[in-house]
Design a protein around this nucleic acid. Structure first.
Lengths: 145, 145
DNA sequence: TATTGTTATACTCTATAACTATA
DNA sequence: TATAGTTATAGAGTATAACAATA
């Protein structure tokens, strides 16, 4: 086992810790999501699409922080699986609508989310727990202030 | 501008916020690092290597959370740039040692790190600030408990 | 027999540029 | 003329499997 002063130094850098924590979290979450045949980014799209049946691809991307050029690669497999459908709003835009199958899948995913988020929060010592969401929320808007 | 309830819901999920915050942070940090011709993962390697001149490739990977199979792709460009050198310890292992040029580059990077981390922390409201590092530190060890 | 370094490969997420067709 | 959707492409990080050389 290695016990270098370097790790101590790295462990003091919020940016480094943020990166590592996110990496660990995503690996675990992706594993839990795998049985539902959903990747994290696909679930994000499904999640947002499920909140409003009038959202276009660009709308969803804007909400989820996904560039619209990356949306087709997420939407196409979801459509092929029959989880969403594209409903034309005019000759150019389409609403992304969850099918019944998509709703069911999202409901299943919500269970995974709920349990995972609870486990995640439980990992944080109680005295720091309530500070996590507001701190991350501030960081996520870094540079948009 | 879109103001959906979906964003509210997403914004309540610590896992989602963690992912977004890390993504925003890494984009900004990578931008600040670009003038030094270093990627984030390369700097991490340089940072760890600079803390101990007896560390092997595997050691550095272990400390930095990088699989050893991914180390050559990081070390080779650093060696080609003359920032590190491989010094054989035995017929199999090599110590990863910073060259003078590597030390200089790391020192330059440390300035960027210091300023960036300060800016990052300043983004977090004061009442939550001191909770960020311990919370992230706990999350980073998620699943290793 | 186990470990180190390496190669090959693939997947996920993210990014930019440019095209098309429509508004 | 500007916008929505798309295509193509690339980069960065991370993962597994397997191999040769060495411990």
């Amino acid at each position: 086992m290695i016990e270098p002063k370097a790790d101590v130094a790295l462990a003091e850098l919020p940016g480094y810790l943020l990166r590592r924590a996110a990496s660990v979290m995503m690996t675990e979450f992706a594993t839990r999501l795998a049985p539902l045949d959903l990747r994290i980014s696909e679930l994000t799209v499904l999640f947002v699409a499920g909140s409003d049946d009038q959202l276009t691809s660009s709308d969803i991307g804007q909400v989820a922080g996904i560039k619209r050029a990356n949306m087709p690669k997420l939407l196409d497999p979801l459509e092929q699986q029959g989880l969403i459908r594209r409903e034309p709003l005019d000759g150019r835009r389409s609403a992304i609508i969850l099918t019944d199958k998509g709703q069911t899948r999202l409901n299943e995913a919500r269970k995974v989310i709920t349990e995972f988020e609870a486990d995640l929060l439980a990992t944080v010592p109680a005295r720091h727990r309530n500070h996590l969401v507001p701190a991350l929320d501030a960081l996520r808007n870094y540079g948009k202030g």
